[in-house]
């Protein structure tokens, strides 16, 4: 591949890295909502349960981030 072609590919991959990273950062800092009025709904328990939205969010974020990692690796694998 020519240098320019390689650089274009790198730039495309860099954009992809940034998109994945921004999703992580937005989700991560959304955790702060738990301590604000805007996130008061998170502190309530789920219907018929003692599990709060806050606790669910903690577990969800971990699983969501792992899923994003799998998607990221899959995209690279598909690209070869």
């Amino acid at each position: 591949m020519e240098t320019e072609g390689k650089l274009a590919l790198v730039r495309r991959r860099t954009r992809r890295r940034m998109v994945f990273s921004v999703i992580i950062l937005l989700s991560y800092f959304a955790f702060v909502l738990n301590w604000t009025g805007a996130g008061a709904f998170l502190t309530r328990a789920l219907p018929g349960s003692h599990i709060t939205g806050s606790l669910l969010m903690f577990v969800f974020l971990i699983l969501f981030f792992l899923a994003l990692e799998l998607a990221f690796l899959w995209l690279y694998r598909r690209e070869g």
């Binding site: 890295r17 994945f20 990273s21 992580i24 950062l25 991560y28 955790f31 738990n34 709060t52 806050s54 606790l55 903690f58 974020l61 971990i62 981030f65 792992l66 994003l68 990692e69 990221f72 690796l73």
Partner: peptide
């Protein structure tokens, strides 16, 4: 209780970024 999980999330979330960036 729940507040103890802040540092756990902080420590974990670096790893996806480590992979991406």
């Amino acid at each position: 209780g729940f507040d103890g999980l802040v540092l756990a999330l902080g420590a974990f979330s670096a790893w996806p970024l480590m992979l991406f960036l």
